[in-house]
Design a protein around this nucleic acid. Structure first.
Length: 445
RNA sequence: GCGUCAUUGGUGAAGUGGUUAACACGCUGGUUUGUGGCACCAGUAUGCAAGAGUUCGAUUCUCUUAUGACGCCCCA
């Protein structure tokens, strides 16, 4: 049997409805914040992701999903969304557009050649937002606020925003050296991995799981103490804006980014619900003022984040949040013989064109099993077609909630459904009441 | 790339070196010859991830491969 590829998932049924709902919330909130949808290719030239990453991590050597195509081009499946967006920005010379900065969002699949584990697949979906062309601290605060808006809209409550700054390049380099000086003399007390990290990526020692209780961890220098004045003031501004926006956050000096095009603000949002697995971070982002230049574009100040949709689904699950997903169909048609079947497809089609969700059986099974199916589909109404009724130009409609049956004339079927299912029926929509409140508001003015 | 544990029908699963692979749900049909969701009855894996080996004989033991869960590395 042909199986699905390692680290990939099939999403269907009720789970697919969740994903679709998340997508719709993302679209809606992004639009509110005036971020334009951008869609870049899933595969790119390998060097787009390779460039500037260097040998300090395993990223290139083992985690990029790459291959040679038939034209001997080295292709990489995108491991993240930002590089493609920046490439598109540079290639299409968007830095020349009248409206600046550019604000984009994306939502799509990403690929990493990794061993699957909890919260980690080889193909996964991320949505993300980027602001290209602004260095103002407000842009940092805005993207965080945007992220919180999305998660709030979805109903997530157990959120924790962790914030840190790496400072500018000068501060960053200085800090790195101080950190090495701090750990180096005692590195023998640390785990094998940390002995590697001291040379390759010293910032990562800070979030080592093995040595987290080591005394040197607690006394380790903090990025914040090695910022130059400009970087410090910048970080304070970001926090001021977050305060105005009413966003709770906590400054956490262990949040780092390995790649050297990152600077200044970095942040993560995690779901602290105990039902989440070990991988609780549902969003990560930061400022990457160095990236555009690395791919031969003009120096461009950028900030953004990406969120793993799969982990958001996990978080919704962990918090036990029921999404307002419309379930069920408006009408299910039952029939037994061929003439009734033809009427069923005819009227089903009419209702569908009138905007109702309708289904019917392809093969006439027993009435019993058709009733069962109507129940499973959560049909609000059931049309029981009967040759004798049809001869009289009538259809029997059963309300599947109250079990009441009514005989409706065929021509009036759509009007009948309009009356029964119209969401703007007089019961829920009292125009007089609305006018009253409107007038009151106007009086207030 | 490394490690631990797992893989039995449509689903949840029990089980054993030996001629019929429990039980439950679901599904199909019937009791009820066109009004269901209840009840009762019947049917529903020549098959135990794939391949190889050990054996008189393997779903059960061994090895390889694949996949899954979880962890390490890494996490752009």
């Amino acid at each position: 049997m042909i199986q699905r590829q390692k680290g990939t998932i099939d999403i269907y049924g009720d789970v697919a409805k969740k994903w679709k709902y998340i997508d719709s919330v993302v679209d809606m909130v992004m639009e509110k914040y005036n971020y334009g949808y951008i869609r870049t290719p899933i595969f790119e030239d390998f060097s787009l992701f390779h460039r500037g990453i260097g040998d300090s991590t395993d990223i290139v050597s083992k985690e990029t999903y790459d291959f040679l195509d038939k034209g001997n081009r080295r292709i990489a499946l995108r491991p993240e969304g930002t590089a493609g967006v920046v490439r598109a920005y540079v290639e299409n010379k968007m830095y020349g557009d009248a409206i600046q900065p550019k604000k984009f969002y994306y939502n799509g699949t990403m690929y990493r050649y990794e061993r699957p584990q909890s919260g980690r697949d080889r193909e996964f979906t991320q949505f993300g937002a980027e602001i290209l062309g602004s260095d103002d601290p407000l842009s940092d605060a805005e993207v965080i606020s945007l992220a919180i808006s999305i998660f709030k809209m979805l109903g997530l409550k157990d959120l924790k925003v962790r914030l840190n700054t790496l400072g500018d390049k000068e501060s960053r380099d200085k800090y790195r050296q101080v950190l090495v000086d701090h750990f180096k003399p005692h590195i023998d007390d640390f785990c094998e991995d940390c002995k590697e990290r001291i040379n390759k990526n010293p910032l990562r020692i800070l979030d080592c799981k093995v040595d987290k209780d080591n005394e040197l961890m607690k006394t380790a220098p903090k990025t914040i103490d090695y910022l130059n004045d400009e970087s410090r003031e910048r970080f304070e501004k970001v926090q001021e804006y977050l305060d105005v926006l009413g966003i709770n956050y906590e400054v956490d000096p262990t949040i780092v980014r390995g790649l050297d095009y990152y600077n200044h603000t970095v942040f993560e949002i995690e779901d602290t619900n105990p039902n989440m697995g070990l991988n609780r971070v549902i969003l990560g982002g930061g400022r990457y003022n160095g990236l555009a230049e690395q791919i031969d574009g003009p120096a461009t100040a950028c900030v953004g984040w990406a969120s793993g949709a799969g982990r958001v689904v996990d978080a919704l699950e962990a918090e036990g949040i029921e999404l307002p997903i419309d379930d069920g169909i408006d009408m299910f048609f039952l029939y037994v013989n061929e003439d009734e079947k033809k009427s069923a497809i005819y009227y089903a089609n009419e209702l569908r064109e009138a905007g109702y969700s309708v289904d019917t059986e392809f093969t006439g099974k027993s009435l019993k099993s058709q009733f069962k199916k109507a129940d499973r589909l959560n049909a609000r109404y059931i049309a029981v077609l009967n040759s004798d009724d049809l001869k009289n130009g009538e259809i029997k409609i059963k309300n599947n909630k109250t079990k009441e049956e009514e005989v409706v004339s065929c021509e009036a079927l759509i009007y009948y459904m309009d009356e029964k299912l119209n969401t703007f029926s007089e019961e829920d929509f009292d125009i007089d009441e609305l006018m009253k409140t409107k007038n009151m508001k106007e009086e207030d003015k």
